[in-house]
Design a protein around this nucleic acid. Structure first.
Length: 194
DNA sequence: AAGCAACACAACCGCGACCCA
DNA sequence: CTGGGTCGCGGTTGTGTTGCT
């Protein structure tokens, strides 16, 4: 449909940010606050697309970011939240102060996913992986009589009306921006300490 | 020491939702 | 009500780093 590009690509830098660009962005946001990303680059004297500025600020420059390795506790929280929320990284990030959705997404894809797979757990369903090819009917997956934590999470998820994460991730966008659902998730997670 | 592969993470892209004239 | 502009999100890619042979 010819959606107009978010910025004039011919006049924008791409790739890694320089220290000077970082500093300009920090200075500008300190002075004027976040928001209006579209016009920010011009106002701040940056040859960057607004989206790029927003991403850089949120994922790297924000003063409240907690850099460094994820703790074991954070690992567990991410796994639990992922089992409940699926790939809604922004919601998961909202439960981990100082962490960003991008950071969590990367961490999930590079560390946790592998960790779960190596321990025999399907990272998408959080259920034990069967040795054969993945079947569509995962009710038949190898379950013993013990109730796993993942299982109880899924039960809880169903009980609070969250959509199954086997659905397309696209639905999540509306869900993540739905304040009503966010609230219900919040209400659900809060007592659990999230 | 050099070459290669695997890993880690920053950044980009495209899409859908939201907002407002 | 509608359409354009903007924002935010998740998926994906690109590149630097580290480890291994």
């Amino acid at each position: 449909m010819g959606r107009s590009p978010c910025c004039e690509k011919a006049h924008t830098n791409k790739g890694a940010w320089t220290k000077d660009e970082d500093q300009r962005l920090i200075n500008y946001i300190r002075a004027h606050g976040e928001g209006n990303w579209r016009s920010l680059p011009k106002s701040a004297g940056l040859l960057r697309c607004g989206k790029s500025c927003r991403l850089r600020w949120i994922n790297y420059l924000r003063p409240d970011l907690k850099r460094g390795n994820f703790s074991e506790e954070e690992d567990e929280i991410i796994i639990k939240l992922h089992s409940l929320l699926g790939n809604r990284w922004s919601l998961i990030a909202g439960r981990l102060p100082g962490r960003t959705d991008n950071e969590i997404k990367n961490y999930w894809n590079t560390h946790i996913k592998r960790k779960l797979i190596s321990s025999g757990v399907d990272p998408q369903t959080h259920r034990p992986r069967s040795s054969g090819p993945p079947s569509k009917d995962n009710s038949s997956s190898a379950h013993d009589s013990t109730t796993t934590e993942e299982e109880s999470c899924v039960d809880l998820e169903l009980s609070i009306g969250l959509p199954s994460h086997s659905h397309s991730s696209k639905y999540m966008k509306s869900a993540s921006s739905s304040s009503a659902e966010s609230k219900s998730i919040h209400d659900f997670l809060w007592p659990l300490g999230f």
